[in-house]
C-alpha cells in the first residue's frame, strides 16, 4: 500500500470481521526481563523461580526485577521449588461470558515463598480442599511447554 492507495471500505480492512461486525482488541505484551527468565525456567527446567530482596527479606514469586517495597534492583534468583501452600481457593461456576460452566473448575491462589500464583487445582474434589494444605505443580511434558503460565497444567494436593 502506498501513499496514493487507501482502504475505503471497512470490509477490506483485514482487522475488521464483517461477518460478526467485530474489531478484535489485540496487542503484544512484553513479559519483561524478569518475566522472560521466569518463563524460560518453567519451560526448560520445570522450575519456579523467585527473586529475593535481602533488605526486605522477601522472595517475590513470580520473579521481579525490582522490589516494590524498597525499590532495589533484584538479581538474587532463587529456585523456590514446585510445592506451595494453598492460600485461598474457589469453585468457578461461570464462564467468561457469564454462561454456566458445564463442569465447574477449581481455582487456587498458591503461596510460593512470599508470592502467590493463581492457577487451577486438579486431581481432587472440593471436599478434600482446605486453606493451608500443601499443593504441588503438575507440569506439562517438556515438548508441550511454550514459556507461559500454562506450562504448569495445574496444581494438585500433596498426598502425605
Amino acid at each position: 500500500m502506498g501513499i496514493l492507495e487507501r482502504i475505503t471500505k471497512n470490509v477490506d480492512n483485514k482487522y475488521w470481521y464483517p461477518e460478526n461486525d467485530t474489531f478484535p482488541v489485540k496487542n503484544r505484551y512484553t513479559a519483561g526481563v524478569a518475566g522472560q527468565k521466569f518463563f524460560q525456567e518453567l519451560k526448560d527446567n520445570g522450575k519456579i523461580y523467585g527473586t529475593t530482596c535481602a533488605a526486605c527479606k522477601l522472595t517475590f514469586v513470580p520473579a521481579k526485577l525490582f522490589c516494590e517495597q524498597c525499590f532495589a534492583e533484584l538479581d538474587d534468583w532463587v529456585d523456590v521449588g514446585t510445592t506451595g501452600i494453598l492460600w485461598s481457593w474457589t469453585i468457578a461456576y461461570k464462564n467468561k461470558d457469564d454462561s454456566k460452566k458445564e463442569t465447574p473448575t477449581l481455582l487456587a491462589a498458591i503461596r510460593l515463598a512470599d508470592g502467590l500464583l493463581v492457577h487451577w487445582l486438579g486431581e481432587c474434589s472440593p471436599e478434600d480442599v482446605e486453606i493451608g494444605m500443601p499443593v504441588t505443580a503438575v507440569f506439562k511434558d517438556p515438548g508441550e511447554r511454550e514459556g507461559s503460565l500454562l506450562d504448569i497444567g495445574h496444581f494438585k494436593p500433596v498426598i502425605s
Binding site: 457469564d98 473448575t105 487451577w120 507461559s148 500454562l150
Partner: peptide, 9 residues
C-alpha cells in the same frame, strides 16, 4: 502473563 492465560471469568 500471570492471570489472563487461564481465560477464566
Amino acid at each position: 502473563t500471570y492471570v489472563r492465560p487461564l481465560k477464566e471469568n
